[in-house]
Design a binder for these strands. Structure first.
Lengths: 192, 192
DNA sequence: TGCAGAATGTGATGTAGATCACCTAAGCCC
DNA sequence: GGGCTTAGGTGATCTACATCACATTCTGCA
């Protein structure tokens, strides 16, 4: 399935666009390919695009002063990612994005998104719902952080994204859960 | 300042509505007053409204199996709150909302919001941006949870909302930070 | 105005998970 | 294909915070 069809199927779940409108919208996306390990956004960069994943897996992460990494999001096909804080506030990137595997993405600039949203009401509708889902997911994860211990969060993650177990090295899963790789290792070796 | 003017000032920061459009939009909001301690949404309720705070302070919270409370959000004037998960997915409330002080709010039904969004492009624009800000705040809080210890999060919270220190009992601040009230107490009594 | 319940402080003790140190196995690259 | 880097496992120790227990205000309201 080609990128255009994937995006079309994705958007048509929440918004009704005519073919002309969709073609117009799609004309603002630039396809791009990346190799495993390649950076898409690095800390300190100027950020002016967001990315829609067609294939592969990205991670959006934050590195703190003690060089510890925290993963905010794994981005799988049909997910969107970027440093949205930097993108919307026109500040430098504090969140980085790179490729866990080879990946194809569609790039959309902040400017183009805003232009399209103001020109096509249904596009604005789509982006409202997309953000909405992100907000709900983020709240849910926050609650899980407060309420559950590491083991419960690990199981929750694997129940939600079983593919991750094989696709993603364990120390990245630890960085998503916010625990040390040692603790995670002990965790799933204990109950087998 | 009356509720209508407060909402108008709030919305006009991100969207441009004509007076007629705003009047139409405003006609869908129902003002309501609550007393300190009163519940607005209780676990298990059917949720069909969201709430815009005019005065007072609300809290949105979750109670887990061990009857421990976690506060997702303090809602101050010009903030919006609800159990958005339940509201958008038409499920029963898992998040509750009640009043920390006497409060006035404007109620907007989910149905009316969607109707207005489809009728007025700029209203949809406003709600996209509102959700966006919520999403960014939620991501920031998640990062803070992973990266900072309790003391840093406590100081961050008070730096952001100095009013809270006097307005809100300490055990609620602990419930927001996700620590026990004992730990919080020891924390700010240590460094004085 | 007096008292019941809520809010807060503080000691003692238990524990999940961090950190450090070191080891093994598996990719990957010239 | 040999060496080097990255991923992963495991023991020992340390620490922030939870939990329990109880004392001490504060506060709203009968």
């Amino acid at each position: 399935m080609d990128p255009k069809e994937i995006l079309k199927a994705h958007i048509s779940k929440t918004a009704t666009l005519t073919d002309e409108q969709f073609d117009y919208l799609f004309s603002h996306f630039k396809p791009k390919s990346f190799k495993k390990g390649q950076a898409i956004i690095s800390e300190g960069d100027k950020v002016d695009h967001e990315y829609f994943v067609i294939s592969g897996c990205l991670k959006a992460f934050f590195i703190n002063d003690e060089i510890k990494m925290y993963i905010l999001q794994f981005a799988m096909p049909t997910w969107w990612t970027s440093d949205y804080g930097a993108l919307y506030n026109h500040t430098r990137a504090t969140i980085s994005v790179d490729c866990i595997s080879d990946a194809e993405v569609l790039c959309l600039s902040n400017e183009d998104r805003e232009k399209i949203c103001s020109e096509i009401h249904q596009a604005e509708h789509f982006f409202r719902w997309r953000t909405n889902r992100g907000y709900l997911a983020s709240q849910k994860r926050l609650l899980s952080f407060m309420n559950n211990d590491t083991k419960a969060r690990y199981e929750e993650l694997l129940a939600m994204y079983p593919q991750l177990y094989n696709l993603v090295p364990k120390h990245l899963i630890a960085a998503y859960l916010g625990v040390s790789r040692e603790t995670l290792s002990r965790l799933y070796n204990a109950h087998k």
